[in-house]
Design a protein around this nucleic acid. Structure first.
Lengths: 189, 189
DNA sequence: CGGAGCGGAGAACGCTGGTTCTCCGGGTGT
DNA sequence: ACACCCGGAGAACCAGCGTTCTCCGCTCCG
C-alpha cells in the first residue's frame, strides 16, 4: 500500500468516525482499526491527531462544496439556482447517517480550545457564503439576499441535525422563495 | 454552606465552564476549583458528570426561555413581538463570552454518544419552536411562518457563533420583516 | 471535657487515549 | 545466501480525568 492510498484510507475512516460520533469521542486506535493503516504509518502521515482532524475538515470542505456546486449547476436559470441550494440540502439531510453540519459540530466541540479548528469552520462558512453571493449576484438579487439565504441554510442544517429530520430543507426553500418574490416586488412595485 | 447553595454554585461554575470551553474539555476537578464545592459534595449532588451536564442544560433552558419571554413581552404589538425575538438574539450575541447556542454545541459534541443530551437539545428546540408558534398565532400569521422564523433564528445563532459577530441577528430580523410583509401581501393581494 | 459524625482537602485508583517503542517477518540488493 | 531496511502488530508509556477513599479538623451533644 503506497502513501497516498494509506492517506486516503486514513482520512476515509477518520471522516466517517469523527462525523458519526464527534471528534474527541474517537481515538487514534479506532481509526487505525477502521482504516487498516498502522499507528506507525498514521503518525508518519499525521504527526498528531490535531493534524488529522484538520485534514479531515479540509478535505470534507472541498468535497462538500464541489457536491453543492455540481448539484446547483444542474439548474440553468439563475433564479432557480438559488433555490436549488435548498434542494441540495434536502438530499444531504436524507442521507443515512446525517448528523448535522460537520463544521458547526466541530466548532461547537473544539472551537474554544483549538484555534485551527475554529479557523477552518469560519473558512468553510465564509466560502459557502461567497458561493451564495455569486448565485445571488448572478440572479440579480440585492446583496442583502446573500446573508438572508445563508441564515436560512444554516438554520436548516442545525434544525435538521437536532431533530434528525429533512423537512427543514423544504421549509427553508419555501421561505427563500418568499424572500425572492419580496425582493422582486420591492424592485418593481 | 447548605445543599441548595452548593448546588447553585456548582451549576454556576459548570455552566460557565461547559459553555465557555465545551463539556468534555472541562474536568470535575476544575468545576470543584471554580465552584468551591468539594468533590465529595459534588458527587453527592450529582452522582456522575452526566447528571451535572443534564442539570446544566435543564437549568439553562429554563433561564434562557424566561429571558426571551421577558424581552419579548416588552413589546405590545403582536406583529412587533415576533421581530423582538431577533432583537433579543442580538443582545444575547453581544454579551461577552457568547459562543453560540449551548444546545447546538452540546448536541454536536455529545448528541451521538449521549441520548440524554440529544433529548435535552431537541426538547429545548421544540420548546423554542412552540414559543414562536404562539407569537405567530397571536400575530395572525400563517402557521408556516413558525418554521421560517425558527430557521432564521437558528441560522443567526450558528452564524453569530462561528463568526463571533452579532450582525446575523439584524440580518435575520430584516429577513423576518420581509417575510412578514410577504405573508400580509399574500393574504390581501 | 470526650467522643462521634459531618464535611473539606487532596491523594489514590483505574481506565482511556495520544504517542512512542520493541520486536519481528518479509522483501531486496549484492 | 546474507545483511539490511521497511513496515506491521501490538505492547508500553504517560498524562488526564472520572470516581472513590483516607485523613483530619470542626462542631455538636452528652
Amino acid at each position: 500500500m503506497d502513501g497516498t492510498a494509506a492517506r486516503r484510507q486514513a482520512l476515509d475512516a477518520a471522516e466517517r468516525l469523527f462525523y458519526e460520533r464527534g471528534i474527541r469521542a474517537v481515538g487514534m486506535d479506532e481509526i487505525r482499526t477502521a482504516s487498516g493503516v498502522s499507528l506507525k504509518r498514521l503518525y508518519q502521515l499525521f504527526p498528531a491527531k490535531d493534524q488529522l482532524v484538520q485534514a479531515y475538515l479540509e478535505r470534507r470542505d472541498v468535497a462538500w462544496r464541489r457536491r453543492l456546486a455540481d448539484r446547483v449547476e444542474r439548474a440553468s436559470d439563475p433564479g432557480e439556482r438559488v433555490l436549488t441550494v435548498f434542494d441540495f440540502l434536502g438530499e444531504w439531510f436524507r442521507e443515512p447517517g446525517f448528523r448535522g453540519c460537520a463544521w458547526i459540530n466541530a466548532h461547537g466541540e473544539l472551537g474554544a480550545t483549538s484555534p485551527a479548528v475554529a479557523a477552518l469552520a469560519t473558512a468553510h462558512k465564509t466560502a459557502f457564503r461567497a458561493y451564495l453571493a455569486g448565485l445571488v449576484a448572478a440572479a440579480g438579487l440585492p446583496d442583502a439576499a446573500t446573508d438572508h439565504l445563508l441564515l436560512l441554510a444554516e438554520g436548516a442544517m442545525v434544525t435538521a441535525g437536532v431533530f434528525g429530520c429533512a423537512r427543514p430543507a423544504a421549509q427553508a426553500r419555501e421561505a427563500a422563495a418568499l424572500l425572492l418574490a419580496a425582493y422582486a416586488g420591492a424592485r418593481t412595485p
